[in-house]
Design a protein around this nucleic acid. Structure first.
Lengths: 249, 249
DNA sequence: TTGTAATTGATTATTTTTGAACAAATGTAC
DNA sequence: GTACATTTGTTCAAAAATAATCAATTACAA
């Protein structure tokens, strides 16, 4: 019984039951638990299963339905501090891109009274800036109800028609080695389009995301000009050394 | 029972009841309260639940920020009747344009459960249909805060990229002699673009606007295919004689 | 055969998870 | 406001799962 064969069996069992323990697999495959664990390490690295303590689950079962996610509510203070710094970078008359991240959203309150143009794919941003001195350009295309934002090819083309002074975006992970990464590739296209069409690219992210890599890596580190984060760490210093301007408070 | 599985169960229970106490969860999951609290700490940090003293609540996220303060409230019943008729015209699978008029807005409630595509420049329409079975395509461009809608050349170009089965629009005046008219020319471009790119053009308007001409005349009567209105008058009959299909109730 | 590398299993730390006990903080009733 | 009950955070210990190390087995090629 080689690894390939075990892999098939494990995946079949998982497909059937949704979740299995290491012990069960060891029994059914008549191999030791340590071998099962080694197999599961590989399968997890390949993204085929979700590893839990004591076993595995189907990846679908671990996805949280989106109506629960309300990231805007967490770490509000840190996010606000990051955005205060970001707002200082903005000049009167600027044209800026804002993406649909929860951190970027909190930038709204600090730019309400500026005479600038905001181009965004985020509906909450639109609503927040609606009755302010900011002129809003909304990116058109398919609505993603989960993210309350516009995504897709048409949206990216729309962005491509404008040249902005600054782009403010968020990511799920950033590292010197693998650059920018996200949980999903849906947002990556928007981010890339905004970066490509702005003079200066800003990343707004809290320190917990620095040095981390997530599922989908979509841009090298040097796509970025400035990173604004909440505190200096070894990881942020590394990024600074790589030539990115890093702002903290 | 691992954390991942508990998380799913907790979220499901919360979804069902809106709020749950720590004790209830401990009982139902057959684990200690301290473990429940630890789980809730994680879920709260992820923004998935709202932590209260003694339990959790659902995070409220889709409050409708857009609404028609003035116009939508008047003649609600008449408008609803017009829209009920309009909704009957729509087939499953249709692609339809909806403009930013207050009458057209009330069509939303009658199409929530249809499997159709809606292309619109109206933000209230977007929010109204956000969590429904309707797929939404939002027209991109400059936001007009007064109308809570997107207008301008870019918006018209966006509309031009799609071909729809039906277009539902409103006007401020319609007459056989001068065709369609509006108080302002801003909306006229959108209307014309939607008409040009749909197989059948519907006008939703109450009888008070029929036979009237307003400031800006932007299209001949024959740009229209169907007019849906609340009652037959001499003016509506005239329009019917001019070759427009007129629906009333 | 024989040597080498890869795989597997056993033993042993190490980490993670869980629950209990107790102190601190919070909410409620009066 | 105070007193009381409840909830929460903290610390510690036990149990389970995992990682690390090393030995045994197997596969394979010269």
């Amino acid at each position: 019984m080689n690894f390939q064969k075990r892999k098939n069996i494990i995946l079949n069992i998982l497909e059937e039951r949704g979740e299995v323990t290491v012990k069960e697999l060891a029994d059914e495959l008549a191999i030791s638990e340590i071998t099962v664990r080694r197999d599961l390490t590989v399968l997890t690295a390949d993204g085929l299963v979700y590893r839990t303590h004591g076993g595995i689950m189907k990846v679908e079962l671990t996805k949280t339905p989106f109506h629960f996610a309300n990231k805007a509510a967490i770490n509000v203070e840190e996010k606000d501090n990051i955005c205060r710094l970001a707002a200082k970078e903005i000049q009167e008359g600027d044209i800026i891109f804002m993406d649909c991240g929860s951190t970027v959203f909190r930038l709204c309150q600090f730019i309400r009274n500026k005479k600038i143009h905001v181009i965004t794919n985020s509906l909450p941003v639109v609503y927040e800036l609606m009755n302010s001195s900011v002129k809003i350009n909304l990116v058109g295309g398919e609505i993603d109800p989960e993210r309350q934002a516009v995504h897709g090819r048409i949206a990216e083309e729309h962005i491509g028609r404008y040249k902005a002074d600054r782009a403010f975006i968020g990511v799920d992970g950033i590292s010197v080695k693998n650059g920018l990464s996200a949980f999903s590739e849906i947002e990556a296209g928007i981010t890339l389009a905004m970066f490509a069409n702005s003079a200066i690219s800003y990343l707004l992210c809290d320190a917990s995301k620095v040095g981390k890599d997530k599922y989908f890596q979509f841009a090298p580190l040097n796509a970025l000009d400035v990173m604004i984060t909440n505190k200096k760490t070894d990881d942020t210093e590394e990024i600074e050394k790589a030539g990115i301007r890093v702002l903290t408070f």
